[in-house]
């Protein structure tokens, strides 16, 4: 147990608590939601064991589902995200590859890579989430609006948290 993994665990617990206590109650204009717990899965080191990531995503999804009373909806979206994350990370590998065992956050990777990594992943997660929740493609445009608005809102919140608490000067 080194200091970086302790940091990750503390960060994950904080994100989970924030999600459950604060962001669960937020729904702007009835269509904009925030799921910052997704960042827990996305911020795990890219070289981490894939099975471990899948299991972590499954457990996090289960916990969130308990609080949202939506059985399996968050779980399936999180597991899918954890699976696709590996391939997407490979596709957008920067020149010279990744450093070993670092959390892919704003500080270490820079804004451009960070947003190319996060935005599509958030979109996939929210897309799966809202359409499984709707139980199909009826109400298509309404659900798509939810997906897009929530993707940008979640990204904005994650970005703000990164800038405020993980910036170069302060660290955590």
């Amino acid at each position: 147990m080194n200091s970086s993994s302790t940091k990750l665990i503390v960060q994950s617990v904080i994100f989970l608590i924030l999600q459950v206590v604060i962001f669960r109650n937020i729904a702007l204009l009835d269509v904009t939601f925030c799921f910052i717990y997704v960042a827990i899965i996305l911020l795990l080191p890219l070289e981490m064991d894939r099975i471990l990531i899948l299991v972590i995503a499954f457990i996090i999804g289960l916990i969130i589902d308990m609080f949202y009373n939506s059985f399996g909806v968050h779980t399936s979206a999180s597991v899918l995200l954890a699976f696709l994350r590996f391939y997407w990370g490979n596709i957008i590998t920067p020149q010279g590859g990744y450093e070993i065992n670092i959390s892919p956050n704003l500080k270490t990777m820079g804004f451009q890579w960070f947003s190319t990594y996060f935005l599509p992943m958030l979109f996939v997660h929210h897309f799966t989430l809202f359409f499984t929740e709707a139980g199909g493609f009826f109400l298509f445009w309404f659900t798509l609006l939810k997906v897009i608005m929530s993707t940008f809102f979640t990204f904005l919140v994650i970005l703000l948290i990164q800038i405020l608490f993980f910036s170069r000067k302060r660290g955590i």
Binding site: R50, G61, F71, G72, T75, L80, A82, T132
Partner: peptide
């Protein structure tokens, strides 16, 4: 094995839904 675990967990959560 990762893909298998993924499929397994995904089936589990779909069953939950």
């Amino acid at each position: 094995r990762a893909t298998l675990v993924f499929v397994l967990l995904e089936i589990l959560s779909l069953w939950m839904i």
